[in-house]
């Protein structure tokens, strides 16, 4: 912690809240991290951590859902492809049999 007074930092912080720029307010917390008391530093770490964890959890859910859905579609499509290939094989066999009968 440096010797910038906490009441000065508090005032700066609430002025940024009043200004309404969220990114700037977050940047202030990071820029002045070392000027803040240990217990406030801990709260900042925890708040950013929870924010990151929440994003990571949302991402995990979205990616999981997306992959499951698309992999299911792959499975369905593979079955369709297999049935088309079987159909072609059957047509070819029938044609072969007809040709042989003609001969």
């Amino acid at each position: 912690m440096t010797n910038i007074s906490f009441s000065y930092l508090y005032q700066e912080f609430v002025e940024l809240l009043s200004k309404g720029d969220e990114n700037e307010a977050k940047q202030f917390l990071v820029d002045h991290f070392n000027d803040l008391p240990k217990d406030v530093q801990d709260d900042i770490i925890m708040a950013f951590f929870e924010e990151g964890l929440s994003l990571a959890a949302i991402e995990a859910d979205e990616i999981d859902k997306f992959q499951k859905e698309r992999l299911e579609e792959v499975e369905v499509l593979e079955k369709i492809k297999k049935s088309l290939e079987d159909k072609i094989k059957l047509i070819d066999l029938k044609k072969e049999a007809t040709d042989e009968a003609k001969e």
């Binding site: 977050k26 940047q27 917390l29 990071v30 991290f33 070392n34 530093q41 801990d42 900042i44 770490i45 925890m46 950013f48 951590f49 924010e51 990151g52 964890l53 994003l55 990571a56 991402e59």
Partner: peptide, 28 residues
């Protein structure tokens, strides 16, 4: 995974290290 989701947490990671973040979060 969590640290990479937050650019601000990445900066704090440089300041206190991953151990520092881990200790603080565990304590909280």
């Amino acid at each position: 995974g969590v640290i990479t989701r937050s650019p601000n947490l990445q900066t704090l990671n440089h300041l206190v290290g991953q151990d520092g973040i881990q200790r603080t979060v565990a304590k909280k």
